[in-house]
Amino acid sequence: MSAAVPENAPEHCPGTNSEQAGKVDACAGCPNQQICATTPKGPDPDIGVIRDRLTGVRRKILVLSGKGGVGKSTFTGQLAFALAVDPELQVGVVDVDVCGPSIPRVMGVEGERVHQANTGWQPVYAADNLAVMSVGFLLRESADAVIWRGPKKNGLIKQFMKDVDWGDLDYLLVDTPPGTSDEHLSLVQYLREAGVDGALVVTTPQEVALADVRKELNFCRKVGVRVLGVAENMAGFVCPSCKGESDIFPASNGGARRMADEFGVPFLGSVPLDPLIGKSCDHGVSFVEEYPESPASRAFLDVVAALRAQLD
Results as ranks from 00 to 15, higher is better:
Phe249Gln: 07
Cys242Glu: 14
Phe263Gln: 12
Ala231Ile: 05
Asp95Pro: 07
Cys30Ser: 09
Ser186Ile: 11
Ser181Thr: 03
Leu185Met: 11
Asp261Leu: 08
Val227Gln: 04
Thr204Glu: 11
Ala145Gly: 04
Asp302Ile: 08
Gly179Pro: 12
Asp52Tyr: 01
Arg308Val: 05
Ala299Lys: 03
Cys99Gln: 02
Tyr125Gln: 07
Phe81Glu: 04
Asp46Lys: 15
Ala235Tyr: 04
Ala296Gln: 08
Ile50Cys: 02
Gln90Arg: 12
Lys41Pro: 01
Glu289Met: 09
Met234Tyr: 07
Ala235Asp: 11
Gly111Cys: 09
Leu130Pro: 03
Arg140Lys: 15
Gly66Glu: 01
Arg192Ser: 13
Asp44Phe: 10
Glu110Lys: 01
Leu185Asp: 15
Phe249Val: 00
Val201Glu: 13
Val201Pro: 12
Gly269Gln: 05
Met1Ala: 03
Ser280Cys: 15
Glu88Ala: 14
Leu138Thr: 13
Asp25Val: 07
Gln20Asn: 15
Arg192Pro: 10
Val303Glu: 05
Ala9Leu: 08
Val57Glu: 00
Gln34Trp: 13
Gly77His: 01
Ser186Gln: 11
Gly22Cys: 08
Val208Ala: 01
Thr16Asp: 10
Val57Thr: 14
Leu276Trp: 01
Glu193Ser: 11
Ala199Val: 06
Arg53Trp: 09
Asp128Arg: 09
Val114Cys: 06
Gly224Pro: 00
Ala199Arg: 13
